[in-house]
């Protein structure tokens, strides 16, 4: 199965990547070729197989309910959080006005 230009346009919109007509024309056959190629996975009988969940068998660790125990994962560092923002005002990030 190949994917056509409108499908690529739809995915691009879903992925929030603006694409020109020329880009769509170029991308559609490339993506089709890749998808055609990965479709060989359909040959594999996986009826008895569970999808992989943990790469290396391991279970999820849980952390203690402590505030700011480690500054690298704690809050109270607004300057660092805002330091790279394209627009930061009055302690907020600024984005174009959203109408909900």
């Amino acid at each position: 199965m190949s994917i056509d230009r409108p499908t690529v346009a739809k995915i691009a919109s879903l992925a929030r990547i603006k694409m020109t007509d020329a880009e769509l024309d170029r991308m559609a056959p490339e993506l089709s070729a890749i998808l055609d190629w990965v479709e060989q996975l359909g040959e594999v009988d996986t009826s008895e197989v569970e999808p992989m969940t943990a790469v290396i068998p391991n279970t999820l660790r849980l952390r203690a309910d402590e505030v700011d125990a480690d500054p690298r994962t704690g809050g109270d560092r607004r300057d660092d959080v805002l330091a790279n923002a394209p627009v930061a005002e009055h302690g907020f990030f600024g984005v174009p006005k959203v109408i909900e």
């Binding site: 569970e50 999808p51 992989m52």
Partner: peptide
């Protein structure tokens, strides 16, 4: 399907 194949590769 890919994650199942991955399990088979492993």
């Amino acid at each position: 399907q890919a994650q199942k194949v991955r399990a088979l590769v492993a």
